[in-house]
């Protein structure tokens, strides 16, 4: 009976939401602030990827919040899993995995850093690059579970990268402007070194996300 009732409710919810969604102005959204950002972003921020300018400049504190959430999730997972049945897995993984991960490791690192550093030009950025970096460390950990990446090193990178992100923001505040105000000159649109402090911010984000997720995955995989 329980299942039928649930299905009924699910269908009911679906129909209702569809009824409501029919009134959505699809495709012609009143971009109250969208248009203004599209107009001002290239000039004011100088980043080719306008989403990045929104993520790091216009809505910078959202991204800071986002970093803090990931940090909180990793810390909480650490707190929860702290000493749960951590039996260290010794021995080596299979030959294919070991050589594969050795080959992949440098490749993943370069792709990861590429994505992070080109955040303001092409799609992608700190988060996506960070995940790729984490995958790199995780692959090497899978291959050789015994020497897992140093826990201290990870938390150090994590802490410093986060502090760097806030440091850049505070620097703007100290310099008379507002918190997280874009600094440095905007340079040529489309160049690697452009859009002022945005690449630095995304680098900090990338390192932090990478370290955090690597730690998290290592902890989970114990």
């Amino acid at each position: 009976m329980h299942r039928i009732a649930t299905l009924l409710f699910a269908l009911g919810l679906g129909v209702l939401l569809l009824g409501l969604a029919a009134q959505l102005p699809l495709g012609a959204t009143p971009m109250a602030i969208g248009n203004e950002i599209l107009a001002r972003a290239p000039g004011e921020i100088g980043a080719a990827n306008i989403v990045t300018s929104v993520v790091l400049a216009y809505r910078g504190i959202d991204t800071l919040g986002e970093l803090a959430i990931l940090f909180a999730a990793a810390t909480a997972a650490g707190l929860v899993l702290g000493h749960a049945g951590s039996r260290s897995r010794n021995g080596e993984a299979g030959f294919i995995l070991r050589t594969g991960s050795d080959l992949l490791f440098p490749l993943l690192l370069t792709v990861g850093f590429y994505i992070v550093l080109h955040g303001h030009l092409t799609p992608g950025g700190g988060f996506q690059g960070g995940v790729v970096l984490a995958a790199a460390f995780f692959a090497s950990f899978l291959a050789r579970p015994s020497h897992r990446p140093g826990h201290g090193v990870i938390s150090l990178i994590e802490g410093l990268a986060g502090a760097a992100f806030i440091g850049i923001g505070l620097a703007a505040l100290a310099g008379g402007g507002a918190f997280l105000q874009p600094l440095l000159d905007r340079g040529m649109l489309g160049e690697l070194v452009s859009a002022g402090s945005l690449p630095l911010l995304y680098l900090a984000v990338g390192l932090k996300v990478g370290a955090e997720l690597a730690g998290l995955l290592a902890q989970l995989a114990e």
């Binding site: 329980h2 009732a5 649930t6 409710f9 699910a10 009911g12 919810l13 209702l16 009824g19 409501l20």
Partner: peptide
């Protein structure tokens, strides 16, 4: 969650 589902359906139905 089952009651959550029921409550939200009721709520949105009332809203609509």
């Amino acid at each position: 969650a089952f009651y959550l589902l029921a409550a939200s359906v009721a709520l949105i139905a009332w809203v609509a």
